[in-house]
Simulated assay, not measured.
Amino acid sequence: MATNTFSQNTTPAEDEATVKVTVTSIDGKPRKNDEITFISSKSGKTFKIVTDALGKSIILLKKADKYDVYYNNLNEKEKVQQFEIPQSEGKYTLNLTLKYDPPRTITLKNVFFDTGKASLRPESFAALNDLYDALKMKATMIVEIAGHTDNVGNKTANQLLSEQRAMSVKNYLTKKGIDAKRIIAKGYGDTEAFADNDSNEGKQQNRRTEVRIISE
């Protein structure tokens, strides 16, 4: 059970604790509309909340359990903390403060294109749907979709391919409802190599699509 503000009344069961969550940046600014996930060590169950405009939320969790805490950074979950709720009688309230600054650039995992083309393969849709959900929740966020290639082949062709692939990702998101003004599609060809192009592994790492947060 979760809610987005501290003010709403919640009544925990005997085996539940009230966890009041405050989420801020490292310098103390509230992080609004952040999705926080709690995973129980005992049951493996997942519980989610979304912070309000003050970076706050509240959740009821079982006592006598440990929880791993993650924040959702666009389509990637990042572990931020682990905490334990002891077994206790009567009411138990825990104040949990989470501080983090998410990376501003995220490489999209499981986003694939047909070889030498800009058409998205169907196995990419799950990751892009997660990205859509995150952008929908972060309604004011502006991002850049950055396409990259390795150094194999014609440099001009690689530049064009990277631009077209970035645009394919943008088009997928806008067709689902994200405002096109919030997404900048840009290709970089092979000019921003992440790894050494001398190995197949390095080339694979360089063929990537990134999301860069411009503003929140």
Rank of each mutant, 00 (worst) to 15 (best):
K63S: 02
N9P: 05
L173K: 08
P103G: 02
T209A: 03
I49S: 04
I39E: 12
G90C: 09
R207Q: 13
T156R: 05
K109W: 03
K99A: 12
I178M: 11
N110K: 00
G28L: 12
K203I: 10
K138R: 05
E16L: 06
E76K: 10
T18Y: 11
E210F: 07
K99D: 10
E89G: 12
Y132T: 00
A134W: 03
R182Y: 09
S162Y: 04
E35F: 02
A64H: 01
K66V: 01
L160D: 10
I145H: 11
S43P: 06
K117H: 10
E84G: 00
K29P: 10
T51N: 01
I214S: 06
G55H: 14
T149R: 15
F125P: 08
E89S: 11
D190Y: 01
G147P: 03
T93D: 13
K186N: 13
A139W: 15
K181Y: 04
Q82D: 00
L161R: 06
K99F: 05
L108M: 02
K181G: 06
D190Q: 09
F47Y: 15
Q87A: 06
K29I: 10
S162F: 09
D68N: 11
T140D: 15
R121D: 00
A64Y: 14
E210T: 10
F6C: 05
D198R: 03
L120W: 04
T51E: 06
E16W: 01
I58P: 03
K56S: 14
S41Y: 12
N200P: 05
T105D: 02
Y188D: 15
N73T: 09
R165F: 14
Q87F: 11
T97V: 11
T51R: 05
V152L: 12
K62N: 02
D133Q: 08
G44Q: 04
I49F: 07
V80Q: 09
D27I: 04
M141D: 05
T156G: 15
E89C: 10
D198Q: 09
M141S: 12
T22E: 14
K99N: 10
V19F: 02
P122T: 11
M137A: 12
T115I: 12
Y67E: 06
N95H: 14
K20F: 15
R121A: 00
D190W: 01
S57T: 08
N206E: 05
Y71K: 08
F194Y: 09
S7A: 11
S40M: 03
A64L: 07
A17F: 01
K186P: 12
K170L: 01
F6Q: 14
L131F: 02
N9R: 14
D34H: 08
T149S: 13
D65M: 03
D34M: 14
N9W: 03
K109G: 00
N200T: 04
K20E: 07
Q87M: 07
D101G: 02
K181T: 15
Y132L: 04
R104A: 12
G202E: 01
Y172W: 06
D52R: 04
F125W: 04
S25H: 08
K45C: 13
E144K: 05
Q87V: 14
G147I: 00
F6T: 02
E216G: 04
A157R: 09
N200G: 00
A13M: 10
T107K: 14
Y188V: 03
G116W: 09
K99S: 06
L108T: 00
I36M: 07
N154M: 09
A13P: 00
I49H: 00
